[in-house]
Amino acid sequence: MTNSAAWSWNLLDDVRGMLSYPFMVNAFRGGTIVAVVAGVVGWFMVLRKQTFAGHTLSVAAFPGAAAATLLGISATIGYFGFCLGAALVIAVASRPTRARGFSAESAVVGTVQALVLASGYLFASLYSGLLNGLNNQLFGFTFGITNDQVVTLGLAAIAVLATMAIVGRPLFFASIDSDVAAARGVGVRVVGVVFLLLLGAAAAEATQITGALLVFALLVMPAAIAQRLTARPIASIALAVAIGVTATWAGLTGAYYTSYPSGFCITSVAFAGFVLASAAKRSGGAKA
């Protein structure tokens, strides 16, 4: 952003000045919705050690947007179509390899990710005008969110959170101990697939705020911080949401008052939190 408004230390005036622009209001609305969804879904992602799959689903948004531009359809359809599609591919392809453990699955995920990004690049090359918008798709265009987009984000967020509320308990059980959960009649496999789809939907949402490459920051970092600070699940999820929202607000404010990209500001705030939490946990652990 080239507009570098002055920071006056009069916090009320600063906030009022910032929110006098509709694009800032929408950035805050959209950012908050995305941070809440990413906080909840990301918490389970970190718990299930599916960070690599999460990263792959987040980058699937890039070819989604590029394909939508190429075909002239709505970008939202592209985002959700590709992210959910990639989630299904990972769910199907990693099934028969379960017995062979994580190593085979990680090769599947890596291949899917590279292929997805390569397709995005192909679409971008075929549609020659798109290359200039490449950076926005990859690194986010927080300050260009429209009212309609905010509504779409909100509806999708409600759907994801409602599904999460339904599958939350069995998912938690299956994530902690899948053998016992299966023995107790939890559909471990179904729950796993549903979760991958939710992860895809959350990634498709968040990509519109942070860009395909930085979604991952909102998914992994708040959850990682929260899980380092408390072991109680509900408190930890709430904390992850709070941290995600705080990082987004702080990052957006930072991006408004400086000339730095919003993606950089959001990831920096979150990463600083992660380093502090890790240090706190290490010193706490050393005392105990």
Partner: peptide, 25 residues
């Protein structure tokens, strides 16, 4: 640990976005 890797590299990418901004301006 993959959470450490994930957090570190999400931030590294943010840094990449910053460098790119500096270079393009």
């Amino acid at each position: 640990d993959d959470v450490v890797i994930g957090s570190a590299f999400a931030w590294v990418l943010g840094l990449g976005a910053l460098f790119q901004r500096i270079y393009t301006t």
